[in-house]
Amino acid sequence: MTAQAIIQSLASGLLMGLLYGLIAVGLALIFGLMDVTNFAHGEFLMIAMYVSFFLFTFFAIDPLLSAPLVAAAMFVFGAVIYLLIVRFAMRAKTNAGMVQIFTTFGLAIVLRGLAQFFFTPDYRSIPQSWLGGKTISFAGIFLPEPQLVGALVSIAAFAGLYFFIHRTDFGRALEATREDPGAVALVGIDKNRVFAFGWGLGAGLVGLAGAIMAVFFYIYPDVGASFALIAYVTVALGGFGSVFGAFAGGIIVGLVEAMTALMLPPSLKSVGIYAVYLLVVFIRPRGLFGSM
């Protein structure tokens, strides 16, 4: 194994890792805001990929151009899901954790079923796009363009999120609601609106990731499931609720996955991610940046 091969694989791992971070951040955001794990997060990704696919197929809009549209559509979708379903799961007085888990889990199954019903179980892909299949070579290292753009979008999204949370009124309301929803109500902030906004934001971010994933990944009803577990591990690795833990977690997951693929047969590449997760939580039971 040459140094070249190692650097090549680390570079692609880093790009993929930044995308994993973008996929996972919505999960971390929602958890941090209201202590709810969205078990339909993978299905949100799946829907975003389909939206991107159909915008391309019917309107010939390149996924790169449609990404903001997909994110906006997913924002609305996430907020509606909160208002129509999750809001009621928050009202449970007993077994609240269980109710939330199974409500979002049931939702995941419904969304998968709906995708099968309307879109059939067929694997689809976007055959030709501006970025699809292209690579950039840089000092002898080849970087696939879709992943590269995805990584840049991810960095931009995290930077934007940082600015939003720390510099805007709504971001501060978000932070305040997360610290003490009861006190927030006293100063006239509608908790439900903040939560709906949080769900919208979380879904919008995974929507952004989905739009880019659609360029280089197959699109099918179960596609979310394969990324959901990685997203949970990413969030837990960074520490539940820590938005920037998701960023670091994503990078670690991407790098570890790439390194494992170098050493073990491809079918075992996820073992490395799982092993690193276990190792990290055995040493730090609340993840790398988790505080609660």
Binding site: T103, G106, V110, R112, G113
Partner: peptide
């Protein structure tokens, strides 16, 4: 899935 959601709620 709908039944799971309804029963949980």
């Amino acid at each position: 899935g709908t039944l799971i959601v309804l029963i949980a709620l």
